[in-house]
Amino acid sequence: MRPDNWHLTEDIDDFLARAGDFLCSRPVMHNTPLTTLEKLRTRGANADGAEAPVFGRLESGGEVRAIFYRTPRGRLTLTTLSPEQAETLAAHLTISATPISGVTADHDTATAFAQAWQRHTGAAPVRDWRGLLHRLGTLTPPEPVPAGRSRLVDERDHEHLMCWCREFAADVGEVVSIDAASWAGTRFAEKRYTYWETPDGTPVSMAGANPMVAGQVRVDPVYTPAHLRDRGYAGAVTVEVSRAALAAGATDVVLFTDPANPTSNALYQRIGYVPVADFTGYSF
């Protein structure tokens, strides 16, 4: 397999026309590319005036075998690659002088590319993210359900929602500006949010859901303020968001957890989420 089997473009519509069927063939494993690329397509790939993202597809035998996209900040997201395919991609990007600041993919793919990139460029990889992908099996509401009810977040909640998104981002180590001016450009926009409220109407937990693409919905983020945790609120609101996704016709409902957090992993597995694959991110 030669490096020139990788085809790069900045035209998202052409890219999706050629690679869309491949992405939809594995909606669970491809949930992040499907969701991100749909957002770029609908908003415009460089709607904020930033450098255009770069999209790539690996073709062999007339079929797309893998894809990547590179954000304006230089971060790569990859679908599953063999070590040989990771090597050819690293070679291609080196030859084309494409700047890369990091990579995110399933663990084996991310590690293979990080090692290949270091061989080609000398840039040492530093692991900066881990995620355990889960897919919903049989939805199982927690027992007992905490007192209260779910409620869709609406415009009156926007300031409060942004505050909780800022707190969530800080909790998971994301450096991001979230305010009224920057909101539309963050990864937290374009989601549908649900609160869990106590009987007196006080929000105590939230869960977001990305728009459905290729029959899959990714639940993200789920957040409960620290002083309200361990009361069942996160499980209750996640069940409600998951149930809504199924009712809307989703065939797959997925979410990522921190594999180093046994509490959250146990919670999601109790309500029906089944581990699928480990994902890893490296910065260079």
Rank of each mutant, 00 (worst) to 15 (best):
A91S: 13
T77P: 00
F113V: 02
L81R: 02
T94K: 12
L81V: 01
L76P: 02
E63R: 12
S101V: 05
R65L: 15
S101P: 01
T79K: 01
S101N: 13
L93V: 00
P83M: 06
E87Y: 04
A86F: 06
S101H: 08
G61N: 04
G56K: 01
H107I: 01
I67V: 15
P99H: 12
R70C: 13
P83S: 07
G61T: 05
T80M: 06
T77N: 08
R57I: 02
T109N: 03
E63I: 03
A110E: 00
I95W: 12
E63F: 02
R70H: 11
F68S: 08
L89Y: 04
D106W: 00
R65Q: 12
A105C: 06
F68T: 08
L76G: 05
D106G: 06
R57N: 04
V103G: 06
Y69Q: 07
A114Y: 03
S101L: 10
L81H: 08
V103R: 00
A66Q: 02
G74C: 10
E87M: 05
Q115E: 14
L58Q: 08
L76N: 05
T94G: 15
A66R: 06
G62D: 13
G74K: 03
L81I: 00
G61Y: 07
R57T: 03
H92N: 12
G56D: 09
Y69P: 01
A110K: 04
G62R: 09
G62H: 12
R57H: 13
Q85G: 14
V64I: 15
A86P: 05
V64L: 05
G61F: 07
P83E: 09
D108P: 03
R57S: 09
S82K: 03
T88E: 10
A66V: 00
T71M: 12
T77V: 13
G62A: 11
T98G: 05
A97K: 12
H92W: 04
